[in-house]
Simulated assay, not measured.
Amino acid sequence: MSDFPEVETQPKIKLDPKLLQESKAQVEAERQVVIHVTLTISELPSLIRIWSNTYLICGNSSAKSKLLNADKISFAPLWTRVDQEHYQFTLIFEGLARDCVVFDLVEDIPTMDRFEYFGIARNQSDIYHLNLIP
């Protein structure tokens, strides 16, 4: 017989089901998709911007994820001046539906010079790197 007390190596934890459900809902709400864009620009200097009505559209359901934020690119009506051939910026969107496997990035504006990228294969991290050439 040992002089040491018995130690429980895997303690049993009891979680309040309501708290667990609220936690799952919060994780679901905070999912985001991050897209790092490298834009190749042939005419320098140039001006670029992104419209708030830019979406990720799921290929199998047409569900839309809204653009939440952008870094290193202005939201319309403001412009960002670009003085380099390869310019990088980041777009942050709402999370995609869990069953989405392929999606498109679409700037929903009525002009030809909009950001579009089709057939992006979903990955586990929901972080993407796109090369765009207008």
Score class of each variant (00 low, 15 high):
residue 1 M to D: 06
residue 4 F to N: 14
residue 4 F to E: 15
residue 4 F to H: 15
residue 5 P to G: 04
residue 6 E to W: 09
residue 7 V to Q: 11
residue 8 E to S: 11
residue 8 E to G: 05
residue 12 K to L: 14
residue 13 I to M: 09
residue 13 I to Q: 08
residue 13 I to Y: 11
residue 15 L to T: 15
residue 16 D to M: 03
residue 17 P to D: 06
residue 17 P to T: 04
residue 18 K to N: 13
residue 19 L to D: 12
residue 19 L to Y: 08
residue 20 L to C: 08
residue 22 E to T: 04
residue 22 E to P: 02
residue 23 S to N: 10
residue 24 K to G: 04
residue 25 A to W: 02
residue 26 Q to F: 03
residue 27 V to S: 02
residue 27 V to H: 03
residue 29 A to C: 04
residue 31 R to P: 04
residue 31 R to Q: 14
residue 33 V to A: 02
residue 34 V to R: 06
residue 35 I to S: 01
residue 35 I to P: 00
residue 35 I to W: 00
residue 36 H to N: 15
residue 37 V to N: 01
residue 37 V to E: 01
residue 37 V to T: 03
residue 38 T to R: 09
residue 40 T to I: 11
residue 41 I to D: 04
residue 41 I to P: 04
residue 41 I to T: 09
residue 43 E to W: 10
residue 43 E to Y: 10
residue 44 L to N: 10
residue 44 L to Y: 06
residue 47 L to S: 12
residue 48 I to T: 07
residue 48 I to S: 03
residue 49 R to C: 15
residue 49 R to P: 08
residue 52 S to F: 13
residue 54 T to F: 12
residue 55 Y to C: 02
residue 57 I to Y: 02
residue 57 I to E: 09
residue 58 C to D: 02
residue 58 C to Y: 02
residue 59 G to Q: 06
residue 60 N to V: 06
residue 61 S to M: 07
residue 61 S to N: 12
residue 61 S to Q: 06
residue 61 S to L: 07
residue 62 S to W: 03
residue 64 K to T: 14
residue 64 K to E: 12
residue 64 K to Y: 10
residue 64 K to D: 07
residue 65 S to E: 07
residue 65 S to P: 05
residue 65 S to D: 06
residue 67 L to T: 05
residue 69 N to Q: 12
residue 70 A to Y: 05
residue 72 K to W: 02
residue 72 K to Q: 12
residue 72 K to E: 11
residue 73 I to E: 00
residue 75 F to E: 03
residue 75 F to T: 08
residue 76 A to R: 15
residue 76 A to M: 15
residue 77 P to Y: 15
residue 80 T to P: 09
residue 81 R to W: 03
residue 81 R to N: 14
residue 81 R to H: 10
residue 82 V to L: 13
residue 82 V to F: 13
residue 84 Q to R: 10
residue 87 Y to S: 03
residue 88 Q to D: 06
residue 92 I to P: 00
residue 93 F to Y: 05
residue 94 E to K: 11
residue 95 G to W: 10
residue 95 G to S: 06
residue 95 G to Q: 11
residue 96 L to P: 01
residue 97 A to G: 05
residue 97 A to S: 09
residue 99 D to E: 14
residue 100 C to V: 08
residue 103 F to Y: 00
residue 103 F to N: 00
residue 109 I to V: 14
residue 109 I to K: 12
residue 110 P to I: 11
residue 111 T to Y: 15
residue 113 D to L: 13
residue 114 R to K: 13
residue 115 F to S: 01
residue 115 F to Y: 11
residue 115 F to R: 02
residue 116 E to D: 03
residue 117 Y to G: 00
residue 118 F to N: 07
residue 119 G to V: 00
residue 119 G to Y: 01
residue 120 I to K: 02
residue 121 A to W: 10
residue 121 A to R: 13
residue 121 A to V: 13
residue 123 N to C: 05
residue 124 Q to H: 13
residue 127 I to K: 14
residue 127 I to Q: 14
residue 127 I to S: 07
residue 128 Y to N: 01
residue 129 H to R: 11
residue 131 N to K: 08
residue 131 N to F: 05
residue 132 L to W: 02
residue 133 I to G: 12
residue 133 I to Y: 07
residue 133 I to K: 13
